[in-house]
Amino acid sequence: MTNAITIKNLNYSYPEQGELFKNFDFSVQEGEWLAIVGHNGSGKSTLAKLILGLLDFDQGEIQVFDEKLSEETLASIRAQVGMVFQNPDNQFVGATVADDVAFGLENRQVPSKEMPAKIEAALKQVGMEDYAEREPHTLSGGQKQRVALASILALHPRVIILDEATAMLDPEGKQAVMETLKELKARYQDQLTLIMITHDMEEAALADRVAVVSDGQLVFDEKPETLFLKGKQLAELGLAQPFSMELQSALGISQTTYRTKQELATWLSTLKA
């Protein structure tokens, strides 16, 4: 298996608030869907910024596929790693949705003849092809985040990092973005590595693996089904557990099986007196 991202012995301190990462080691495999969760200030967004070279680290090494992150490789690494940020309003540059997707392609000097097809293909993948001529500000938050995803997809990234990309969305918007991510993952499979930074355990449940970060330390690193059995430890880290696990624990059912809401409802109905 190839590593998409390899972090070795990373050291990073905030400018004024001191040390965050100390001798931090971590890796993400190609094709993985990884969720990074942690309380506010745990360092999860900082980690994403370090990978993209938006912040400079003090010591250690970050490698994206076979390239070591440095001044020289920055452009090439950013060409492979796309990022969707939290605030949908801060990532638009184009006058229309299509212009916005075109912007990244222009930066890559894609011939203008090839652009319309690429733009349409990218918008189709996020279900926004009917909105190509719309002005971005007329879109809902969920639609904006899907356009942000399309702008990245048009550049064929190998890794997409979503930094709390659904935090500002209403439930419908959240769901639309998550559905889009599922479709992308099904389409690209091992060709696309997804890293999703989130507080939302229902979202994290969709990932192959969940990394729990607290104060710059990797506390847990495992499948969601086993992580969610650690309700008490999660609470101590300031994290919630999924509703179904919270209810199981309130019912006094020992936390040895992860059940989704639907599974729990079905199971409980077989136990009806």
């Binding site: 019912l251 006094g252 059912i253 020992s254 040895t256 099986t257 199971w267 409980l268 077989t270 136990l271 009806k272 007196a273």
Partner: peptide, 18 residues
């Protein structure tokens, strides 16, 4: 919910599941 569940079944399920 608890009041409406068969406690014998629940206990059985618990040890099976556990």
């Amino acid at each position: 919910l608890a009041g409406q569940l068969d406690s014998a079944k629940l206990t059985g399920q618990r040890s099976d599941q556990a």
